[in-house]
């Protein structure tokens, strides 16, 4: 099986890599780029723990081959904080106790970011839809939704 050369930009940094035909974007991020914030919970696109933003849209990094993502731009949870300044979503997640075990948190944050990048004033229902593919077994979702609502208000008042 021959390897494929790809160029992907992750959190603003361009990487040129030779990847195998079976390597998933999730593997590339975690194993090669050591960005272990993106988690694997199911491997079949059901839990959302591996959610990243690919060219502006929330996607499962477990269901994308890195070879498919050649030329793409990827944002992971590690790309949220800018120069030591937490993203308003991160601040809101802390403040609203939207985190318990934390394993779903990175994916949850990416789904939330993809939503508010497109739709700065989402309704509660739109927030629920944006995170419907991010399973959380600890929080019952309520404080996550509250955090996202509050982050949109914080962004608006900026």
């Amino acid at each position: 099986m021959s390897n494929i050369e790809v160029t992907i930009t992750v959190n603003g940094t361009k990487h040129r890599l030779m990847v195998g035909p079976k390597e998933r974007l999730l593997d590339t991020l975690r194993e090669r780029l050591h960005l272990t914030g993106t988690k694997e919970g199911c491997g079949v696109g059901e839990c959302g723990a591996c959610t990243v933003i690919l060219d502006g849209e929330a996607v499962h990094s477990c269901l994308i081959l890195t070879a498919q993502a050649d030329g793409s731009e990827v944002i992971t949870v590690e790309g949220l904080e800018k120069e030591g300044q937490l993203h308003p979503l991160q601040e809101a997640f802390i403040k609203h106790h939207a985190v318990q075990c934390g394993f779903c948190t990175p994916g949850m944050l990416m789904s939330a970011k993809a939503l508010i990048d497109k739709n700065p004033n989402p309704t509660r229902e739109e927030i629920k839809t944006a995170i419907e593919g991010n399973l959380c077994r600890c929080t019952g979702y309520e404080q996550i939704i509250e955090a996202i609502e509050s982050a949109t208000r914080a962004l608006e008042s900026r």
Partner: peptide
């Protein structure tokens, strides 16, 4: 009082290391 979680910062930044990491 609703003190912030002491592990929240590591968890929201992706720095928190779990077994597989």
């Amino acid at each position: 009082k609703p003190a912030e979680r002491v592990d929240a910062y590591e968890k929201v930044t992706g720095r928190a290391k779990y077994g597989a990491d």
